[in-house]
Design a protein around this nucleic acid. Sequence first.
DNA 1: ATCCGGTGTTACCGATCGGTAACGTTCCGG
DNA 2: CCGGAACGTTACCGATCGGTAACACCGGAT
Lengths: 212, 212
Amino acid sequence: MYWGTGWRVPDVTPTRPESPRERILAAADDLFRRHGIRGVGVEAIAADAGTNKMTLYRHFASKDELITAWVRGLVAQKEAAWDVIVAKHPDDPGAQLVQWSRRNAKQLAQMEGRGSAIQNALAELPETDHPARRLLDEHRRREHRRITELCREAGFPEPELAADEFYFLLEGAKSCTQCMGLRRIGEHLIRLVDSMVGSAGKRGTRAPAARR
Amino acid sequence: MYWGTGWRVPDVTPTRPESPRERILAAADDLFRRHGIRGVGVEAIAADAGTNKMTLYRHFASKDELITAWVRGLVAQKEAAWDVIVAKHPDDPGAQLVQWSRRNAKQLAQMEGRGSAIQNALAELPETDHPARRLLDEHRRREHRRITELCREAGFPEPELAADEFYFLLEGAKSCTQCMGLRRIGEHLIRLVDSMVGSAGKRGTRAPAARR
DNA sequence: ATCCGGTGTTACCGATCGGTAACGTTCCGG
DNA sequence: CCGGAACGTTACCGATCGGTAACACCGGAT
């Protein structure tokens, strides 16, 4: 494992800026994203956090619990971003959908070759009774419900169909970051969602993949 | 590991119907799909194939090579399915796209809760220099190029954008099988692609998520 | 001065993993 | 009948994994 040997350079100050728990979670976030959950051991996480395995196990009862805490942070962060957008565009479901697509397009550029952390975690957690897996499933259902409601409020004649289209576009774009040009994907995601939402009320105005 | 104890019931005949190599690949396919590549050991694969580790290593130099052979089979099978559809609808790119979406919708129903094997494998193979990973990347690029060309021939004014939309819908639908109703996803995927292709030439005839 | 909670350090455990050696068996073609 | 390739069986190896025990350390509150 060559990636575990690089020390965390700047934090050699006697009193660490963050608590060990936060550093461990940050290191786990970094390593889980880059190498996958099963591809990284607890020792490497602790070392990357500038601490050791013992301290890690004083904050997390097991690796599974660390995974769960990490996933909990992922979904909390994502849902918080949703809430921010909702607060910024109250009573404008179309704008919320559009802004969400823009936020995702921006994120796409950042995930370097590795795809969405949530999608990857889902792939690495097949056991449906794993607590982290449950968090992910519940999160996805919440998000899908939220989108469906938004599509209904936005006036789509078939909100469930529109919600699935929206969700497919989002998740599909994320899935494609693993092997395609990142910038183009983001731009196209934005254009597709714009076009989708733009023709929500006034039907029959759009040729797909053609507009503008 | 409770899932490894169930014996392969019917094949107790002295001369096995398939060669050990094929049985190993079949067992690997089953276990990799259900538990992930990293979640299953070579011993379990051999046992599930009705043979043992030694024989496995007489056919595959390493687990990585077994993974690569499995992935090679996955992409070969998928591209063969493409070729069949192309042969059935020559000079009709729109029908090819539609049929491909129907084929995928049918597959969606079969992947029980676990998502697309290719997507999951991609998530479990972060190292870009892994031979199996390379096969997957090349496959995706080939498929995307093929779809782009099809969209061009189908008369979409912006073939690259249309191809991304098509690809997003496909991959997004697969990604959603991990936590949502399978049948509805397939139906919606078909309707969305039908609508997309239906309005390829005659622009300005579709309200998204509304038609039919 | 004392105590104590959080931390670092080292060593260790059992289990599992990928992979190999050595030997026995079976079967099939010459 | 014989030889050899393919397969089965057992045992084993070193490495790594998740997880724990025991002890030393340090800082801050009382």
